[in-house]
Write a protein that binds this DNA or RNA. Structure first.
Length: 582
DNA sequence: CCCCCTTTGAAGCCG
DNA sequence: CGGCTTCAAAGGGGG
């Protein structure tokens, strides 16, 4: 949330833009450099591409770099191209945000299964598949095209969609939208809701039609707030409803927000009326006092009964019983996660790879390749989500989930014994990058747009607000993977970060961008070694398979840090290798 | 069966 | 205030 402040959470709009611009300018010292850097990147990339890409035509790869899409079909390419072109034009016109994103809002209404934030709400498998559809929607035209060919059309899916879950989504969303508005202070009356969305007649917020939505986006650069709505929809469509409220649970946390009804109607109309009905599992429909209270998970948390009164208080470490009872409220998704959700299916479809790790790498790359505008969208979405989340779950704090995760991933293991660590290390280094190589489109992508700065969002929310350019620069080299990324975890003790861990991690972290904890960047060998990462490729991917583009470095973005990182990268080019543990 | 892996970002915790 | 850690999604792979 602090970030919000920076961005001026409330007013996303114009200010954001301004800010973002500023950032860029401020960014470090050098805008000009950035530009040059971009060029370099392009060059580098192209060179890399050529080198790396044996199979795929270099030309393709190049193009791919410029376009976000990965291995799009020819059609998709063109579409994309057009799409971007339009975006550019619009930008030029003066509106950053004007670019039409997510044309497919229509799909938004997917029924989602359960509240995304609830752990319980896990999607059924079908749901997941379902998700795939989502991206097509979101996706830019190009992608959609692709999708069609390869995967079932969304429409089909939608049909398939189980009636079961969706109901939740619907309602939940509404709240999002409304809240998402500008600031939605908890107390904010519905009236504040963005006018755009509100129904003129009733004054009630209405769900934007897909068609309507898209327009909004482009329209108001300044009115970021307004955008929020669309975004929220967008998100949902992606697969999971952003904030779905437990079916029964809180249906009306904010009764005032009539949106629900309207929205639901929309959805229902699109999908099936049935959807509206609450699913059986809705646990506490009635019982829930606070919106914040979420129903316990249907699946995961059996106990799910109601949430103890304390819930909104957020008991940090309740007894087990309590924990069980407490619904697990998930963290709001950050920009990247949102992006992942959206794009994952696409990437998967394009690539043969199925492993999430590999896909995520690609996604990470793509993320960097996104234009700021695009990223900005996600940042905003994320911001809105956070806001919404906060409203929905006022008492919730991220810490509530600490320790809840199954096991804390890495660290937990018994601790930071060196042994453990070594173990872990073995896998880390592996690069999952898919052999498909093409899958990920390279970076520069819209590059053309890149110049334009400012990600509003960046300014707003994301601290990182990255300038894509930087990242790109780094990319080329980055073959490396991040070795250490998780290494620290080993060291650190699960419960609390162990000091030792920190130290070790620090090395990595240092390399890493400022904001991001993870060091995605390649670290100097020495450092790595300390961490132990042994780069063993557990799943070795043939080099050939790897594309440079895919490998892009992690997150360079972050302003100042970037530069430094940047240098690092160069110095240390690939680490694919890894070094043996210390 | 569960965790790991991987990505970025946000938030929390700790010093 | 800075650094480090945890968690969010996702799904094949591995133990």
């Amino acid at each position: 949330m602090p970030q919000l402040n920076g961005g001026g959470g409330d007013d996303l709009g114009a200010n954001d833009e301004m800010i973002s611009f500023k950032d860029e300018g401020e960014q470090e010292e050098k805008i000009s450099e950035n530009v040059s850097a971009e060029r370099d990147l392009d060059d580098v990339k192209s060179s890399l591409v050529n080198e790396s890409e044996n199979n795929s035509s270099s030309s393709d790869s190049e193009q791919a770099e410029r376009r976000p899409q990965t291995r799009p079909d020819s059609e998709s390419y063109e579409k994309t191209r057009d799409y971007f072109g339009e975006a550019l034009r619009r930008q030029q016109d003066g509106g950053f945000f004007k670019s039409p994103h997510y044309p497919g809002y229509q799909f938004l209404m997917f029924p989602d299964l359960t509240n995304p934030y609830l752990s319980n709400g896990s999607l059924s498998p079908s749901a997941r598949t379902y998700l795939q559809m989502k991206w097509p929607l979101l996706d830019v035209p190009g992608s959609a095209g692709i999708k069609d060919s390869r995967s079932p059309t969304p429409g089909h899916l939608s049909n398939k969609v189980p009636v079961v879950q969706h109901a939740h989504h619907v309602h939940p969303l509404t709240p999002l939208i409304t809240y998402s508005n500008e600031h939605f202070s908890p107390g904010t009356p519905p009236s504040h809701l963005s006018p755009e969305i509100l129904d003129p007649k009733t004054g009630i917020p209405r769900t934007p039609h897909p068609s309507e939505l898209s327009p909004y986006y482009p329209l108001s650069p300044g009115a970021v707030g307004s955008i929020a709505h669309p975004l929220s929809w967008f998100m949902q469509q992606q697969g999971q409803p952003m904030y779905s409220i437990p079916p029964g649970g809180f249906r009306h946390p904010y009764p005032t927000l009539a949106m629900n009804a309207s929205m639901s109607s929309l959805v229902s109309s699109r999908f099936s009326p049935h959807m509206v009905t609450p699913p059986p599992h809705s646990l506490h429909q009635t019982g829930i006092p606070h919106p914040a209270i979420v129903s316990p998970a249907i699946k995961q948390e059996p106990s799910g009964d109601n949430i103890s009164p304390s819930m909104h208080a957020k008991s940090p470490v309740p007894s087990k019983k309590e924990e069980d009872k407490k619904p697990h409220i998930k963290k709001p998704l950050n920009a990247f996660m949102l992006y992942m959700k959206e794009m994952r299916a696409k990437v998967v479809a394009e690539c043969t790879l199925k492993e999430s790790a590999a896909i995520n790498q690609i996604l990470g790359r793509r993320w960097h390749s996104l234009s700021r505008e695009e990223q900005a969208k996600y940042y905003e979405l994320a911001r809105k989500e956070r806001q919404l989340h906060s409203q929905l779950y006022p008492g919730w704090s991220a810490r509530d989930n600490y320790g809840k995760r199954k096991k804390r991933k890495r660290e937990n293991k018994p601790d930071s014994k060196p042994e453990d660590f070594s173990i872990r290390s073995k896998k880390q280094c592996v690069q999952y990058l898919p052999s498909e190589k093409m899958c990920d489109s390279p970076a520069s992508s819209h590059g053309s747009m890149l110049d334009s700065p400012a990600t509003p969002s960046a300014a707003l929310a994301s601290p990182a607000a990255p300038a894509p350019t930087h990242s790109e620069q780094a990319q080329p080299l980055s073959l490396t993977t991040k070795p250490e990324g998780r290494m620290h975890h080993h060291f650190s003790v699960p419960g609390k970060a162990s000091g030792s861990a920190s130290s070790s991690s620090s090395s990595s972290s240092s390399s890493s961008s400022s904001s991001s904890s993870q060091p995605s960047i390649a670290i100097p060998v020495g450092t790595l070694g300390s961490q132990s990462s042994t780069p063993i490729l557990t799943r070795p991917i043939p080099f050939t398979s790897l594309h440079p583009s895919m490998l892009s470095p992690p997150s360079p973005f972050h302003q100042a840090a970037l530069h430094s990182h940047h240098s690092l990268f160069q110095s240390q080019p690939l680490s694919l290798v890894t070094k043996p543990t210390e």
